Simulated assay, not measured.
Amino acid sequence: MRFPLEDELRSERFRLLETLEGLSDDAFDSGPTLCSEWAPRDVLGHLIGIDYLTGSYLPYALRMHDANRAQAERVRAMPRGRLMEWARHWAANPSLTSRAMAFLTLSDLAVHHQDVLRGLGLTREIPDVVANAILREGVQLSLLLNRRVLAHRLVPTDGGRPLGRGVEVSGTREALGLWLAGRDAVTDELEFVR
């Protein structure tokens, strides 16, 4: 059975692996990302953990940051070759839960891929479905974290409909989504109209 966005989820996972495979060992192990405490390998550990380490969430109840940190720490000492081998299996074989919830898991994956790229000063061409996913994740996270989405009218300059009301902020779907998700490094890419 195929779920909506399942193929896009796999494709974005493989695009992330392509990014990671192109990094030096130093950049992979300790390079900066927009997730301030995490290197690219930690981001990958978190993303893999969503599929394979879901039991690690249970002891943390609603403390998601602690659970995410624990997932990243579990793979920190793993040799890069072994971690990337596991990642290739993860990319090709998403868990049933991740496939069924691809609407959400693609969004989280897409934001974290940008966290790695932007942290290292890299760019890529972002497919439309991924740009939409980044914006969607930003809206969802903003409702939980900073409420920016409730005080702003979001105007995507690269497609999509405006959303919300309040102070108008315009930019690409990627920049809007990252900003809503708390990645303030993209603020200069946005235009605020009062």
Rank of each mutant, 00 (worst) to 15 (best):
P156N: 01
L109S: 10
A151E: 11
R99L: 12
L83S: 06
M1E: 11
A110N: 07
D184Q: 12
V149D: 09
G159Y: 05
A92T: 01
P32A: 11
M1A: 12
W38G: 06
S30F: 04
T97W: 05
G182R: 08
I134Y: 13
M64D: 03
R88C: 05
S11Q: 15
E6Q: 15
G166Y: 04
G160T: 07
L17H: 01
G22L: 07
P127C: 12
G159N: 03
M64T: 15
V43D: 13
L109F: 13
N132R: 14
E85G: 10
R99E: 11
Y60D: 01
I134G: 11
H65V: 07
A39T: 02
R136L: 07
E189Q: 15
L96K: 07
D188K: 09
D184F: 15
L117C: 05
W179P: 03
L34I: 08
R15H: 14
R63T: 00
Y60F: 15
E6Y: 03
R118H: 11
L135Q: 06
R183W: 04
T157G: 05
R74C: 09
P59L: 01
A27E: 14
L34F: 12
L58T: 06
A92Y: 00
S11V: 11
E174Y: 01
L117E: 03
G160S: 05
G45K: 03
I48E: 04
E8G: 02
I48T: 09
T97G: 14
H152Q: 06
D7H: 12
W86G: 01
D108V: 15
G121R: 07
V43P: 05
R69S: 09
E125F: 05
V43H: 09
V130K: 07
R136I: 02
M78W: 07
D158R: 07
R13Q: 10
L122R: 15
D29P: 00
R15C: 07
D51H: 13
A151F: 13
F192G: 00
A91H: 08
T123A: 14
G49V: 12
R88H: 10
L96Q: 06
A91V: 04
H113D: 13
T123K: 13
R183A: 08
E18F: 01
C35D: 03
R63I: 01
A91E: 12
A61C: 00
L178C: 01
V149Q: 08
S170C: 04
M78R: 13
G171M: 02
H89S: 08
E191P: 00
A77T: 09
E125I: 04
G55F: 14
E189W: 02
V43G: 08
E168F: 09
G81H: 04
E125P: 02
A27I: 00
D29V: 02
R153K: 14
L154M: 11
E125L: 08
E6V: 09
F103M: 09
D115Y: 01
E73S: 13
